[in-house]
């Protein structure tokens, strides 16, 4: 099993490496380079060439890539072009905000989804099962910004239960943050619960057709115990991988929700940076997103391996 896990780790590192190449290449082929972005309207062929030389942009791309990667490995992402600040300083609060919201949504959504999935499996075909299925299907079918605006209309504007904008600052306390980010969290929860819940239900029900489940029935084991104790542990692998995909979405794919609630997260920062040709920030954001995605999926693979008793307890 350790060998399998080591393989997954190595594969993860290699994927991250490949992602860094793609990100660098991507920013490289974007029209206009760093020099033209800095000079903007003052760009003449002469000043461009000079600035390029200053920035070292006249050197081959491979050399610059290696240099960039080396710096990144030391935690140096360069300086933002928009405000000349250190990219790490610029990003740190945004990363914290994004992770905070992701964690907030995950802590609520994952247990809720798995619980609902198990409950639906236990009562397969019942009214409860159908309602849960239809409702979650609806929340996943509606575009997330629409869902967000609906929530804002009903809970913030009409009733004033929650603030419509999640404008947290560095000074906000934890309780304040939880309150301010409640609506974006709820939007995200509604978006991701359906997928995880349906996968939990489907994998558990697939296992319910196994001979050892029939054996459990013939042993007189209660229905809930059959689902939770006999089916669920064997259904973990696909559930874990879907959870990982959804957690990755919480970090990487929430830019629309951030925009609706004006939440200062990483996604918004990246969109701003792209429109401003702020290449170092774009690269840093890209790398962080890639790393989060790879890390989560790698963890899912490793957990799935560990959930297999044949690998955990070899003969």
């Amino acid at each position: 099993m350790l060998r399998l896990i080591a393989q997954k780790l190595a594969l993860g590192v290699m994927t991250l490496f490949a992602a860094s190449v793609l990100i660098f290449a991507g920013t490289e082929v974007l029209p206009g380079d760093l020099a033209s972005a800095i000079l903007q309207n003052n760009a003449t062929p002469e000043t461009l060439a000079e600035t390029r030389k200053e920035l070292g942009l006249d050197r081959p791309a491979v050399v610059r890539y290696v240099e960039w990667l080396g710096n990144v490995a030391h935690g140096d992402f360069g300086h933002s072009l928009a405000n000349k600040r250190d990219v790490v300083e610029e990003l740190a609060p945004r990363v914290r905000n994004t992770l905070f919201l992701a964690l907030y949504a995950a802590i609520i959504a994952v247990p809720l989804a798995v619980g609902l999935g198990l409950a639906a499996a236990i009562r397969q075909g019942s009214i409860f099962d159908r309602i849960v299925n239809v409702v979650t299907l609806m929340t996943i079918s509606v575009p997330e910004y629409f869902l967000a605006y609906l929530l804002v209309k009903f809970t913030a504007i009409d009733n004033g239960w929650f603030p419509p904008l999640a404008n947290v600052t560095d000074e906000s306390s934890l309780v304040e943050r939880l309150y301010l980010t409640f609506l974006p969290m709820l939007t995200l929860v509604l978006v991701i619960v359906a997928h995880m819940m349906r996968m939990t239900r489907a994998s558990v029900l697939a296992i319910m057709a196994s001979p050892y489940i029939e054996m459990a029935i013939l042993k007189g084991v209660r229905k809930w115990r059959i689902v939770v104790k006999h089916a669920f542990p064997n259904a973990l692998a696909p559930i874990i991988s879907v959870i990982a995909l959804n957690l990755a979405y919480l970090i990487v794919g929430v830019v629309v929700v951030e925009a609706v609630f004006v939440y200062p997260g990483l996604g918004q920062l990246m969109v701003d940076a792209v429109s401003k040709h702020d290449v170092p920030v774009v690269q840093a954001c890209g790398l962080i997103f890639a790393a989060a995605f790879i890390l989560l999926n790698m963890s899912a693979d490793i957990l799935a391996i560990m959930s297999n008793p044949r690998l955990r307890h070899p003969r």
């Binding site: 196994s210 001979p211 050892y212 029939e214 054996m215 006999h230 542990p233 064997n234």
Partner: peptide, 11 residues
Amino acid sequence: AQSAAASFNPA
């Protein structure tokens, strides 16, 4: 049952 391998829960 006929097949113990299938009738025991692997977990």
